[in-house]
């Protein structure tokens, strides 16, 4: 039997977690093409009504984003107060993102008041419940896996959508696509922030490396579920 090349690799624990997160992301990212709303957008099959449903359902997730990050921040205790500051800043950066979706909704002929009274779709319910559940645990740094996925999938989803809708005759006003264009183009270096957190002693917590990857997997599945269940309440 031949010997397999087993090398002494100099991979840090943070790099290893980042590799696994990248694998989880790549797997789910490629599954986006199979999600009906994305497949139909790419085939130029969307009507304005589909787009309004998309914005309305996505709005529910975006509104909750800074909610669960704040909840997570409140679950972080000493000696991780520096990390808590990062979570608080992150929540603050994103807490008004939903306003962009309101603008797109209005530009597409919807009434923003409808967004506020709309329900989450059944997939968003699961995603949101999961995020708040994890955020309520003590020192829930496994949510870094969730952030990596939501930002990664969100960016790719936005990109696919912005491209697919660019040539769609139903898009006449640039405001209609503002949220997706912004998130597709916006290249804030979240990866750096995540890497800094991963090397900030949180991986010394027993089992945290595995927990981060597991939370990423569950979150990725639920993120796709929310898109698959568009319009199902």
């Amino acid at each position: 039997m031949q010997t397999q090349p087993r090398l002494q690799s100099n991979v840090t624990q943070a790099q290893r977690v980042l590799r696994q997160l990248t694998m989880v992301w790549a797997d789910f990212e490629s599954r986006l093409l199979k999600v009906p709303i994305v497949a139909r957008a790419m085939q130029q099959q969307l009507r304005l009504a589909d787009y309004l449903t998309l914005i309305s359902d996505h709005y529910q997730q975006v509104v909750e984003g800074s909610g669960w990050i704040s909840r997570a921040a409140s679950s972080i205790t000493a000696p991780y107060l520096d990390q808590r500051s990062v979570f608080i800043r992150h929540a603050a950066t994103e807490h008004l993102d939903y306003q962009m979706l309101e603008k797109s909704y209005l530009a597409s002929g919807g009434q923003p008041a409808e967004l506020i009274s709309a329900r989450k779709n059944i997939g968003s319910e699961a995603l949101s419940a999961w995020m708040y559940h994890r955020a309520s645990q003590p020192n829930p740094f496994d949510l870094l896996g969730a952030m990596f996925i939501i930002e990664g999938l969100g960016k790719r989803f936005a990109q696919t959508f912005a491209n697919a809708l660019d040539e769609n005759p139903l898009i006449t006003d640039p405001d209609q696509l503002e949220f997706y264009r912004y998130h597709a183009a916006h290249d804030e270096d979240h990866l750096q922030e995540l890497e800094d957190l991963l090397t900030s002693s949180i991986l010394d917590i027993t089992g945290m490396d595995e927990a981060i990857v597991r939370t990423a997997k569950v979150t990725a599945r639920l993120y796709l579920l929310q898109l698959e269940e568009l319009g199902h309440y």
Binding site: T22, A26, D27, S30
Partner: peptide, 11 residues
């Protein structure tokens, strides 16, 4: 759209 999955498989 295939590039990330190729990179993921390499990792």
């Amino acid at each position: 759209a295939m590039f990330p999955i190729w990179v993921g498989y390499y990792l």
